[in-house]
Design a protein around this nucleic acid. Structure first.
Lengths: 215, 215
DNA sequence: TGCATCTCCAACGTTGCGGTTGGTGTTTCG
DNA sequence: CGAAACACCAACCGCAACGTTGGAGATGCA
């Protein structure tokens, strides 16, 4: 066996992702990461440098996965509902990303991969702005803020789960509540982005058990 | 002077609030809290028990301050704009509370003072529901989720400041950007809560100075 | 005044973390 | 085959953090 170095690297990074998302940069110990991966601690330093670099690597990686999985609708935003729904799906399926972002923001660490991310977000905002100019979106809310709020809708649930629990009485793991939240996110995105003249692309005002329908 | 014990207690708690909000439960050290207060470390343990108890005390205290400062509009929600604006104001004036909440959620600590808080949020949701029944609010979004999202609008900026910075190019400390954000929050709250027939209670669509535009 | 009590603190013990080092087994190349 | 290069790990070092302790100054009561 030719020293499965890539496998080792991957195992370490996965373990680091889980631990960092769970306990945050300060709450995580390098020893625990190594233990979870079943690899010796020293490998971490050899492959990823110190703790901070490892965190940055993990975060950058997770962001790339998101970008790959929910591509920014470069070619047009025709369907906000779908985009918001998919973003929500991604965040509930991978709450780790939201948690990593939160931790990055809270601990005030140097922003990882700032250049690329800024460029990405700016492109996103531009796309929203274009949709506004085309009259597809309402321009009541500035494009950059709109982009920001759409993310909030999808991620806030993972950010303060205790609050969501106190308000809804559910954890979000239940099928029913999950569907309800998804519907809320989509409807809220539509209300923020679409012109009032055409409130809902098709959905009736009255809500069913789970109006879902990504589109 | 009869040993200003209350003053000492207060100074310690204030210092703890600042430190916990800034660095989180794990990133904060008891020594730093004591140093900031100018009091010896041992007093912390005498007055507040261990670190976790201190954190819970701090959080409960801050929540009480919020409740006292932005009372839940028991008697009716006539003016969401005002309520959302005031909540936003509070959170920007005291970003510590949002950060403490975030940290509570992320670290998965036992929810402090859960009973009272749950009761409070439920009352809030009930008020929203009542407004919906009265036709003041649109019922497209369930009341509990609506309450949840209104909080998101106000707090998300403090939650992921790095994201806000990348998207808007500003930190939020600037007067112009602050005003723009406040306007966005209010407008968004209106769009989420109010019926579409009466989009804006008074404000014109075009917004003043901060036209900036991310692109 | 003298003793008990209370507020306060400097210094310490212990634990555990971030990061390193010396050494073992494995592969590759001549 | 021999040696250089590589993947890997057990054990270690220094340090910082949590929580404690023994004692110093101030107050109240007899």
């Amino acid at each position: 066996m030719a020293w499965d170095t890539e496998g080792t690297r991957r195992k370490l990074k996965e373990a680091a992702t889980v631990e960092f998302a769970e306990h945050g940069p300060d709450g995580t110990t390098m020893a625990r990461i190594a233990a979870r991966a079943g690899i010796n601690k020293e490998r971490l330093y050899k492959y990823f440098g110190d703790k901070q670099s490892l965190f940055a690597t993990v975060l950058t990686d997770e962001l790339e996965k998101l970008a790959a999985s929910v591509p920014p609708p470069e070619g047009g935003f025709a369907d906000v509902s779908d985009f918001a729904g998919r973003t929500f799906d991604y965040h509930t399926a991978h709450p780790r990303l939201a948690r990593l972002l939160l931790w990055e923001g809270l601990t005030g660490q140097p922003v990882a991969d700032e250049e690329n991310r800024t460029a990405l977000y700016r492109r996103k905002a531009r796309a929203y702005a274009a949709a506004q100019e085309d009259g597809i979106f309402d321009d009541a809310i500035d494009a950059d803020h709109l982009a920001f709020l759409i993310i909030a809708l999808a991620a806030w649930w993972s950010a303060v789960p205790q609050l969501a629990h106190m308000l809804t009485g559910a954890t979000g793991a239940e099928r029913a509540e999950h569907a309800r939240r998804r519907a809320t996110v989509i409807r809220a995105a539509e209300r923020l982005a679409l012109p009032h003249d055409a409130p809902a692309p098709r959905a009736p005002k009255k809500k069913g058990s789970a109006g879902r329908g990504s589109g």
